[in-house]
Simulated scan of single mutants.
Amino acid sequence: MTGVKQPNWLRFIPSGDAIERAETDHTVVSLLSSRNGTEVIHHELQSGCSWAIAPQKDWNELETVYLLSGKLRYASGDLQGILRPGDTLSCEPASEFIIFTAVEQTSFLYICSNYVFHHYSESTRQFYKLAIEIAEKDGYTAQHCERIRRLSVLIGEKMGLSTTELFSLSYGAFFHDIGKINVPDEILLKPGRLSPEEFDIIKQHTIYGRDILNSSPLPYLAQGSYIAEQHHERYDGSGYPYALKGDQISIGAAIVAVVDSYDAMISNRPYQGAKSKSAAIEEILSLRGKLYHPRVVDTFLEAIREYTDPA
């Protein structure tokens, strides 16, 4: 098309260009075309990353995924399969969650008969940025949230969680500490030991996180709010904020409790040196049935052998 005058009814978009574009660490979303309520959106997902179509109240739109490159695993209830280049999956409308996970670097078109780009791209990007800023402030690297999300979902898949549970787990794991935005910096960043009063304030981040996710304009973020609320509960009832025990704790929160503890152990932070991975695994195993759900620990030991850190 270079050097050729285009008629005003024809729009040529060079590779890499888009009307609008949004990025997180492992996802790129580009709005290619938008007219009369229909949008064509290009997605790029790194291997191991997930995306979803969620059922919504009073929603009756056509949604279509067309795979351009890579492999995309999908699951909805008992239905599951692999999309390959040229494959299409459509729903009108979605009646259950459809979870898509990139088996390898993947590119696909998402076509919707209603305006959705700003609704989920810009707001999600702001939440992702906030979650990463909190992790870095708390002494982690920017990859902390994605590591928690990816390993948690792998464990959830191995435990046979439903697509709805995996959807909630994915968002709840990534945003598990978002409530720390409401904890004063002088307490969150305190290098020494916290006083009992200061620790009581820290504990409130679980409640804050629940409320932040529930109040989001994005309804799918609320799906993970109970994980933000319960991820510091412990199997023996010694956790917070409610001292829940055993199966009173949601399985998603029990998974994040193990993964978050493991990642904290192997991370270098200002007030704590990193343990070796083998030492961290031994500590998790020693607390099986005490602090951590035994079935989650057993599955964690299986999953960690095949888990690879995000690039």
Rank of each mutant, 00 (worst) to 15 (best):
M159K: 14
D138H: 03
E122Y: 01
S152M: 09
S113L: 13
I134Q: 05
K129A: 11
G139P: 02
K158W: 08
L154E: 09
R125T: 10
L130G: 10
G139R: 02
C112P: 14
Y140P: 06
E104S: 07
I111C: 15
R149T: 00
N114Q: 11
L161S: 01
L151A: 03
A131S: 15
Y140N: 07
N114D: 11
I132Y: 03
H118M: 05
I148P: 04
F127S: 05
Y110A: 11
C112A: 15
L109P: 11
L154F: 02
A131E: 06
Q143M: 05
E104H: 05
K158R: 14
A131K: 10
F127N: 04
Y110L: 15
L109E: 07
T163N: 09
Y115G: 05
I111L: 14
Y115K: 07
F117G: 09
E136K: 15
T106M: 08
Q126P: 09
E165H: 03
I111M: 15
R125I: 12
E157N: 10
E146D: 02
E133M: 14
Q126K: 12
I148D: 00
Y128I: 10
R150M: 06
I148Y: 00
R125P: 12
A131T: 11
F117C: 09
T106G: 12
T141C: 00
R125S: 12
Q143Y: 02
V116R: 12
K129C: 11
Y140K: 11
H119W: 05
G139C: 00
L151H: 05
L161Y: 00
S107H: 05
V116S: 13
E122P: 03
G160Y: 02
C145I: 00
Q143N: 08
T141R: 04
A131H: 14
E146V: 04
G139V: 00
N114P: 08
T106S: 14
E104M: 07
M159V: 15
V153L: 14
F108N: 04
K158P: 09
R150Y: 01
F117A: 07
F127L: 05
E136A: 15
S162M: 03
E146S: 05
Y140M: 00
A135L: 02
E122G: 04
S113V: 12
Y110R: 11
S107F: 00
E104G: 07
T163Q: 06
I134C: 08
S107C: 05
F108E: 01
K137L: 05
V116G: 08
G139E: 01
V116K: 10
M159G: 12
L151R: 01
V153G: 15
K158C: 11
E104L: 04
G139W: 02
S113C: 12
E122L: 04
